[in-house]
Amino acid sequence: MTKHEETHKFLVGIFNDEDILIGAIKKLQAAGVKLHDAYTPYPVHHLDEYLGFKRSRLSKAAFLFGATGAILAATFQSYVMGIDWPMIIGGKDFIAPPSFVPVTFEFAVLCASLGMVATFLVSNGLLPWKKAVMFDPRSTDDKFVLAINLADNKKIEEAKIVELLKANGAEEVNTKEIKKK
């Protein structure tokens, strides 16, 4: 039995400049339009705040990964050098904390960076076997693309949104069907 694939219909506004895009976002939000996301060729500062996305918690994740790494490395070194096979080396204590600083630090950095990057990639669906959802291929080149899901805006007429987009600097307004997740 083939399942009927449902799609969402999106309005795609295409802009030439980051400031025009941000201006349009403010105007559309004032008119009560719910925006899906914006697609830009480079990171536009504060764009996520205008679109109402929450601040990322990745830095906290990185701290937790790093702390785990540091504790693991310090414990492991103390176990190896102090408990499992103690040896007198240069007259030092079996557990000589200054000697353990470099490896603890390096391992903490390793865990924090790998852990954070892996979290970022997985939570954003950035994986090699996935296919990119592109509203307009030019958004990786020189266009700033604003996507509006019509399903989120049932109360506002489509023509009204198109008009708002055009009035606020959109060069083109296209429609795009994207499969539901």
């Binding site: 697609y39 679109l51 996305f53 990185a62 950095v109 954003n124 994986l127």
Partner: peptide, 23 residues
Amino acid sequence: FAWNGSAKTWARYEMVALVLAGL
């Protein structure tokens, strides 16, 4: 990696770049 440059991804990406730089 299916990158599409969405504002949400860019914001998190910038956070990753900053923390990686700090590390």
